[in-house]
């Protein structure tokens, strides 16, 4: 296990201590931070490791949310509903991936983006099952108070983040990760050394979708009400890419840091510049990407010291 992977697990462990210090608002932010980190880590499997720019995150987030919502309305307990969301997203994404991932570059990006619209329309029109445009109410899983409810969902999302991180680390160190790296480098050469690139990419797409789907399920149970325009919001597809670019493409630690920094920026900007928050956030992201093209993960203590003082950092 590399130092950056150990650092990632330590960072996630530190996040778990949030309920010791925070109120319900801090826990809400913590839950969102974990959810964003799941998005970024999941996207990193197909976007960072395999080099395929997927815009399908929102599609599987929404699908997971609706699957959990429907199952819970039919009396299935939350853990089993989440498992249902995870398995459905895994299988559906792997099957779709085997077809869509034959496209490359911009073509794949557009095809994956269209999945969001396709799923949204399907949900919108399946009114008997999903409630259509009216949305879907989800039974409460709550504890006795607002704080205990917030704590429960924080730890549930944190647990899912931990599982996602472990899987992503395992993938990065496995034959699958090695193969995906080769596919990103040169797909033709990968085929010519006997790698079944379609299978590798389909597995990657499936894995990238399943945890997003489970996060969608948790989100649905957390907010108790979902509608197509909320859970199939295209921003859920764009944000993970921005987070990954901010943190450092291909690095699990980097993308999680990117997710946390992005949420921090989003919250601060929203609070202070509510009228123009999108514009301000956009400018900040562009500045970050301009000055840190390789993401936050490229920052070292020595670099920061040199930047602040204009002197060379001494090696001790």
């Amino acid at each position: 296990m590399t130092r950056t992977n150990i650092a990632l697990l330590v960072l996630i462990a530190c996040v778990a201590t949030l309920p010791l210090f925070g109120d319900a608002y801090a826990l809400r932010l913590g839950t969102m931070a974990c959810m964003y980190a799941i998005f970024a880590l999941s996207w990193n499997i197909v976007g960072g490791f395999a080099g395929y720019p997927s815009f399908a995150t929102a599609a599987f987030f929404g699908l997971g949310a609706y699957t959990t919502g429907i199952l819970m309305n039919k009396g299935v307990p939350l853990p089993l509903s989440l498992l249902g969301s995870l398995v459905l997203c895994l299988l559906l994404a792997a099957a779709l991936g085997a077809v869509l991932l034959r496209l490359r570059g911009h073509y794949f990006a557009i095809a994956s983006l269209s999945l969001v619209e396709v799923f949204r329309e399907l949900v919108n029109n399946a009114t008997d099952l999903t409630g259509g445009g009216m949305g879907l109410n989800i039974p409460l899983v709550s504890g006795s108070s607002v704080l205990s409810d917030a704590t429960f969902f924080f730890y549930a999302m944190w647990g899912l983040l931990l599982i996602t991180a472990i899987v992503v680390i395992a993938v990065s160190m496995s034959k699958l990760g090695f193969g995906l790296n080769c596919i990103r480098q040169n797909e033709t050469a990968s085929n010519m050394v006997g790698l079944n690139s379609t299978l590798y990419k389909a597995i990657a797409f499936g894995l990238s979708a399943c945890f997003v789907g489970a996060a969608g399920g948790l989100y649905a149970a957390w907010v108790h009400y979902i509608d197509p325009s909320d859970v199939f919001d295209i921003l859920y597809s764009v944000k993970p890419i921005v987070m990954a670019l901010m943190g450092g493409l291909g690095s699990p630690l980097g993308v999680v840091c990117g997710a946390f920094v992005y949420l921090g920026l989003e919250e601060v900007v929203w609070r202070n510049y509510i009228q123009i928050h999108s514009g301000v956030l956009g400018v900040l992201i562009i500045l970050l990407l301009l000055f840190l093209p390789h993401g936050l993960v490229s920052l070292h203590a020595g670099k920061i010291w040199r930047g602040l003082t204009g002197r060379k950092a001494k090696h001790v």
């Binding site: 193969g179 480098q185 050469a189 006997g194």
Partner: peptide, 29 residues
């Protein structure tokens, strides 16, 4: 049946050993 290309296609960002290791993952190996 294995082949080489007219324009070489190495896996950039990897060392020599890793470049050959990729092919060692094939079922025939």
């Amino acid at each position: 049946m294995a082949r080489t290309f007219q324009l070489t296609r190495p896996f950039v960002g990897m060392n020599l050993l890793e470049n050959v290791l990729v092919a060692c993952m094939s079922p025939r190996a």
